[in-house]
């Protein structure tokens, strides 16, 4: 496989894991706009311990998961007292604080970044992404997953039914933070270098977009969102030049066509994002869509009418 494709597979795997990291709190009704902060924690944990103590990747991965999860619990306990837009701002601020703290810590290389010795090739992140996906499907099929979705739909009733809404939310947030730590460690070892600027607000926003646009009702949503939005820019990269020459031809202009500006890819990406928010605010993959695809021949309408008597 060419370096280009292995590079894409690596970033795809990391994005899928990050999407699940953010999906878990979002599925309980808590938006997390601090994904990059937790990814930075994992990345720097892995970088620091493999650079200074010579730990192999098989030790730094679990270590980063632990650090992400531990910080996740510590942060979730006070943070999840806030709600709605305040929680979004608080998680966003948290990521900025983590980024700022790393930038100003000499031991972590400050603005220079850290190089990471133990390189891993794309099969490791891909394998991890598959495991994380299976884990999240399993989790959503348990009673814990049921409680998560119930807390998302109606926290008052969920509480009255005997579920500790706060406990479920803290747990989901912390498991998500642990997954983000894993994604960070994989990033560090795949790119052999970390710098705090890589874990910026744009990353947090993108990952949240994967989840919201993919769909938050099922574990399929984040997978789809991450794959779609990671591959779309690459697809646009290859078809944009042709697209531009069609347009030029359509207007009857001849001669040489200048190569398209890179930024047009992001214009189209942004446009698609806005269109999806208008036409599919619940995300592309919804619960009803999955049901319909799983049993396309169930005569739902008729069943409904029979009962409506």
């Amino acid at each position: 496989m060419s370096g280009y494709w292995t590079g894409i597979l690596t970033i795809l795997a990391i994005n899928v894991i990050m999407a699940y990291a953010i999906f878990l709190p979002v599925a309980t009704g808590q938006l997390n706009l601090g994904g990059a902060g937790f990814q930075a924690l994992g990345a720097y944990t892995a970088a620091y311990f493999s650079a200074n103590y010579g730990l192999t990747v098989w030790l730094t991965l679990p270590l980063s998961i632990l650090v992400g999860g531990a910080v996740g619990i510590a942060i979730a306990l006070p943070l999840l007292r806030t709600k709605g837009v305040y929680l979004v701002l608080a998680t966003f601020a948290l990521a900025e604080v983590i980024g700022g703290a790393i930038l100003n810590t000499e031991a972590l290389g400050g603005a220079m970044g850290l190089s990471v010795p133990d390189y891993v090739d794309y099969p490791v992140p891909m394998g991890a992404a598959v495991l994380v996906t299976l884990f999240c499907f399993y989790l959503m099929a348990t009673r814990f997953g049921l409680a998560m979705r119930a807390a998302h739909d109606d926290e008052v009733v969920t509480d009255l039914l005997g579920v500790s809404v706060r406990g479920v939310r803290v747990a989901a947030f912390a498991i998500g933070a642990a997954l983000a730590g894993l994604a960070g460690a994989l990033y560090a070892h795949s790119y052999s270098f970390v710098e705090s600027q890589s874990f910026n607000a744009t990353l947090s926003i993108y990952v949240l977009l994967y989840v919201l646009l993919g769909g938050t009702q099922t574990a399929l949503g984040p997978l789809f969102g991450a794959v779609f939005f990671t591959l779309l820019p690459e697809v646009l990269r290859s078809i944009l030049p042709e697209f531009k020459s069609w347009i030029v031809l359509a207007f009857g202009a001849g001669g040489n066509v200048s190569p398209p500006d890179e930024s047009w890819r992001f214009v189209i990406l942004g446009l698609l994002t806005v269109l999806m928010m208008i036409f599919r605010p619940e995300g592309l993959i919804t619960r009803t869509l999955v049901d319909r695809l799983c049993s396309p021949f169930t005569p739902r309408r008729r069943v409904l009418r029979e009962v409506a008597v």
């Binding site: 049921l146 979705r149 119930a150 998302h152 739909d153 109606d154 969920t158 009702q217």
Partner: peptide, 10 residues
């Protein structure tokens, strides 16, 4: 106040 996104049995 049923959970609208959950199935009947859920």
């Amino acid at each position: 106040r049923l959970m609208p996104h959950l199935s009947v049995v859920e």
